[in-house]
């Protein structure tokens, strides 16, 4: 039971780190950024392929993975999403999906379609009440709490964060104060993409890497965003851990159904609290 809870918390932590970017772009730009899944995949691959270059040191490789996606995120934001501002939302969604298709195929081209696996960077585990818990997973949970705290401080204490929060509330009013909201939004976009890459990098040692890994995670983090409320950062935090627990608990009884259960929960949430956007 303890290992199930720990597993749920780990999944929740990674889901949180990935979903926060999706939630922010959803809240600020009102589009589903399918390319988020691409950034996540690229982050994971960047870690796996540079790990040997850094002599097996996990932390510098993870930092490299996070930094490596910044130009990619900038290109997607500047040349795809921003060009479709003011047009139909559907076109922006289709365009980001097209970017995902291109990117996934490029990943397949570069790294091949065979799954790659990376071993646990710490390897040691910690015994609590007779159950072995890998320390790496505990570190992931701690890291997600750290990200949450850092984002809380960023959005409540810094000017940039406050502008973004204001823009989430009312874009027109913020703009009428003479603030170039779009500039801040693109900063948030890149920040969210970096977090997605971090999530991808952290998730690599737990599962294996393949070009289509982004599709699944995208759907899961979308469920998190729906359950937590779009652009609601605390809601995202709670929803990520709750859905992580749902996945772990279902997985304990029927492994194959764990992801489907998340969507069932999402449907129930939508029935109880319909979103009228």
């Amino acid at each position: 039971m303890i290992s199930t809870i720990a597993y749920g918390l780990t999944i929740g932590a990674i889901l949180y780190i990935i979903s926060i970017g999706l939630s922010l772009t959803f809240g600020t730009m009102r589009i589903v950024n399918f390319a988020h899944a691409l950034v996540y995949t690229v982050g994971a691959y960047a870690l796996a392929s540079t790990l040997s270059f850094f002599g097996g040191a996990f932390i510098p490789a993870a930092i490299f993975a996070v930094l490596a996606v910044i130009p990619l995120a900038y290109i997607i934001e500047r040349f795809v999403i921003r060009r479709l501002y003011g047009q139909s939302i559907d076109y922006a969604i289709i365009a980001t999906y097209a970017v995902l298709l291109i990117g996934v195929d490029a990943c397949k081209w570069i790294w091949g379609a065979t799954p790659i696996s990376v071993s646990d960077p710490i390897g040691a585990s910690w015994t609590i009440l007779g159950v072995d818990l890998p320390i790496y997973r505990l570190i992931i949970i701690l890291l997600s709490l750290l990200v949450f705290a850092a984002l809380e401080i960023f959005f409540r204490r810094t000017i940039v964060g406050k502008v973004v929060v204001a823009g989430l509330e009312d874009k027109e009013a913020t703009r009428s104060l003479g603030i170039n909201v779009d500039k801040y939004f693109s900063f948030v976009f890149i920040l969210g993409s970096c977090l997605a890459a971090l999530g991808g990098a952290l998730y690599v040692p737990i599962t294996s890497l393949h070009p289509y890994m982004g599709f699944q995670v995208l759907l899961l983090s979308f469920a998190v965003v729906i359950v937590g409320g779009m652009g609601n950062m605390r809601g995202t935090f709670v929803a990520a851990f709750a859905l992580g627990m749902v996945m772990a608990m279902t997985g304990r009884f029927w492994g194959a159904a764990s992801e489907t259960m998340v969507f069932v929960v999402m449907a129930i949430v939508l029935i109880v609290k319909p979103i009228e956007v």
Binding site: F222, P274, I275
Partner: peptide
């Protein structure tokens, strides 16, 4: 459930249900 939503939500809720259907056919 689906029709109440619009835009991005509509697109992805359909995708999520499709995933559920795929799972049902493939495994369950």
């Amino acid at each position: 459930i689906i029709v109440r939503t619009t835009g991005a939500c509509f697109a992805l809720i359909n995708l999520a249900f499709n995933q559920v259907g795929y799972f049902l056919v493939l495994i369950a």
